[in-house]
């Protein structure tokens, strides 16, 4: 069963979004990633739990929290 988790991530431009995307691509089990730079949100559709995804996004070094 998949869920869509929403995270607030400190992104300032498309490059930041690209970094988040590439880091998430390294994690198995992600179905979809939807990033909105203006809202600073990242929506992740996955069967993984939010904590696992949160830890992965944090690898970018950007401030991240579960929305």
């Amino acid at each position: 069963m998949t869920t869509t988790h929403t995270f607030n991530v400190a992104m300032t431009c498309d490059g930041c979004a690209g970094a988040v995307k590439r880091v998430l691509a390294k994690l198995d089990g992600i179905e979809n990633v939807d990033i909105n730079v203006a809202d600073k949100t990242v929506k992740v559709t996955t069967a993984l739990d939010a904590e696992t995804v949160l830890a992965q996004i944090k690898k970018t070094g950007k401030e991240t929290s579960l929305a």
Partner: peptide, 16 residues
């Protein structure tokens, strides 16, 4: 490759 703004650069500086 892939840095587009100062915050990317700062991120790396802080992390390392």
């Amino acid at each position: 490759e892939g840095m587009t703004c100062q915050s990317c650069a700062k991120n790396i500086e802080e992390m390392l």
